[in-house]
Amino acid sequence: MSDTTTTAVTGRINGREQTLQIDNADLLLDVLRDLGLRGAKPSCEMEVCGACTVQLDGLPVSACTTLAAEIDGRDVETIEHLDADGTLHPVQEAFLRHSALQCGFCTPGMVMTAKALLEQDPDPSREDVVHWLEGSICRCTGYATIIDAVLDAAEVMRRAR
């Protein structure tokens, strides 16, 4: 039985397996940001805005409301991993083509959420994209360019397969 307030966890962060001694009370967002991965942003901290979105085992989660200990045995991916090989991910390229960002605060979350969608469903309808992005808030773009970008990225990725 656990009698300390920390837990030893081994998980993959951006493709690299790491063993960390985690404070049970630490949230994933804090731990990632302490590791220098600052793409995911604290904003609402209540699971409603999406600014802190990372992928956990392929699905988007709110890192603001996920215990860091949850990475044990699992795979975390953040926006920083997407251009690790020096080229942008097709979703990022599409965001640029469609000017789907202005201040950029929401963008890491939007991109990670959109990427997760395209991994689950390579050929989403416009309605599917809207539904999947519900709960991802952007104060700048008005969303239309973001949705266009996701659909465009889907097409590019399908053609590349």
């Binding site: 307030t5 049970n24 009370a25 949230l27 967002l29």
Partner: peptide, 11 residues
């Protein structure tokens, strides 16, 4: 950031 107070985690 909102901070949690310490707890033991049983799995």
């Amino acid at each position: 950031m909102l901070i949690l107070s310490d707890f033991r985690l049983h799995r």
